[in-house]
Amino acid sequence: MNSKDFYLALAEKKLIGSSCQVCGLQQVPQRKLCPQCHAENTQITTFSGKGTLAAFTVIRVPPMHMARAGYGSKTPYCVGIVALEEGPSVSAQILNVDLANPDEISIGMPLRMTTIKRESDPSERTYLAFEPC
């Protein structure tokens, strides 16, 4: 189990994490050592990808890697924290929301997982994203 596994799984459109075989704690991303019971007995699990929006922002001053992907003051994007139905939360880009009216994006709204590739990305990674469902 390594840090790279998370993005390798996303390339196959799977959201993975780990679940502790001793205390049952679920984690995203995956970890070898359970931070709750400290057992070194966790296994990779695939999450359902269903969750709700816990916090979000609409960014108009992007970092360089997002600017290269085409985002900017007139082309903002939404990023947030999603509470997964299995318990843990995860950071991800949020797609298909009304970027011009962030007031209308509501915390608690149901979301489902998707993935996104970004323009001019030298890593050619697949990133985690969510959209309303």
Partner: peptide, 15 residues
């Protein structure tokens, strides 16, 4: 994990 998602520092505090 956080920065690749698209977060910036203003973004974290905004969230």
């Amino acid at each position: 994990y956080e920065i690749p998602a698209g977060f910036t520092f203003p973004g974290f505090y905004a969230a």
